[in-house]
């Protein structure tokens, strides 16, 4: 029986999510025995047009060319899994969606005419059908391995969408918001990171995107109660995952509050 084939594709991103694979160490060798990695530019294998069972897609759609590439990948893949904040919500670069992109390009680049960019940075799911998403900036090794393992078993991985608070409490991490007035985003943020930031005493900044049933309005009210002004509250939501619906709505609401 032939091994399932995998391709890892990159769009607009910092490559950090691919590192969750590259830095696996020994499990990467084990993974290479379980699947055929046909395309993984950062690691070596190059075959952009390979037909695969699983396509792992990092990064956001940022140019017209990206859209064509993505459609081709979708057509060539059995399952498509998008990984990381860029691929799932448009990423940090989606901050430009709320600005005048052409003006930014003119301000930043010496030769703006050579820059080919869409006005908006958008998640993969806006353009093609996505079978599953792993949220996080970046995603971690545990998430990647659990997802691939589940797909190899022929089942969908468990969607980790509870709030970060649940994991904090399991670890007996003392709440940074309650004891230190930190503007922690844990109560509206998706788990999966292992409550990394609160475990070292700092506030969660929402890099895993919105949790299920996130009450962003109550969160915004609480942040105000902690002394944050509207613009600061808005920035808590409009940061790594400004393109994620729940965060986007609340961020814009707080920002435009007069």
């Amino acid at each position: 029986m032939s091994k399932p084939s995998v391709a890892i594709h990159k769009f607009s991103s910092c490559d950090g999510c691919q590192l969750a694979l590259l830095n696996l160490g020994e499990p990467l060798l084990q993974l290479a025995e379980l699947v055929d990695i046909l395309h993984f530019a950062e690691a070596g294998p190059l075959d952009e047009n390979a037909k695969v069972d699983i396509a792992i897609v990092e990064g956001s759609v940022s140019t017209l060319h990206d859209i064509e590439r993505l459609k081709n990948i979708r057509a060539n893949s059995g399952l498509l899994m998008s990984i990381g904040a860029c691929a799932t919500s448009g990423g940090l670069q989606a901050l430009r969606n709320m600005a005048d992109t052409q003006q930014w390009i003119a301000d930043i680049y010496a030769s703006p005419d050579v820059i080919d960019s869409l006005d908006k940075s958008t998640p993969i799911k806006d353009h093609v059908n996505v079978d599953l998403e792993l949220w996080g900036c970046p995603v971690n090794q545990r998430q990647i391995l659990m997802a691939i393992r589940a797909l190899l078993f022929g089942v969908m991985p468990v969607d980790e969408h509870d709030k970060v608070c649940m994991e904090c409490k399991r670890q007996q991490t003392v709440c940074t918001m309650v004891t230190k007035n930190e503007p922690c985003m844990g109560p509206v943020t998706r788990t999966g990171c292992g409550a990394l930031c609160p475990s070292v005493g700092r506030d969660c900044y929402g890099c895993y995107g919105p949790a299920e049933n996130a009450n962003t309005q109550a969160m915004a009210n609480r942040l105000q109660g902690l002394g944050l002004v509207d613009a600061e509250v808005a920035r808590r939501f409009l940061f790594i995952n400004s393109g994620a619906d729940a965060f986007h709505r609340q961020g814009v609401l707080s920002r435009e509050k007069k």
């Binding site: 659990m146 393992r149 709030k163 409490k169 399991r170 109560p187 109550a218 969160m219």
Partner: peptide
């Protein structure tokens, strides 16, 4: 309410749990 689960986690009588599987690669 943030529906965050902090209440039940600090409640000394709450006993609800979930079960999950962690397969080796």
């Amino acid at each position: 309410c943030l529906s965050c689960g902090n209440w039940t986690s600090v409640c000394p009588t709450c006993f609800c749990h979930s079960e999950n599987d962690v397969p080796e690669l």
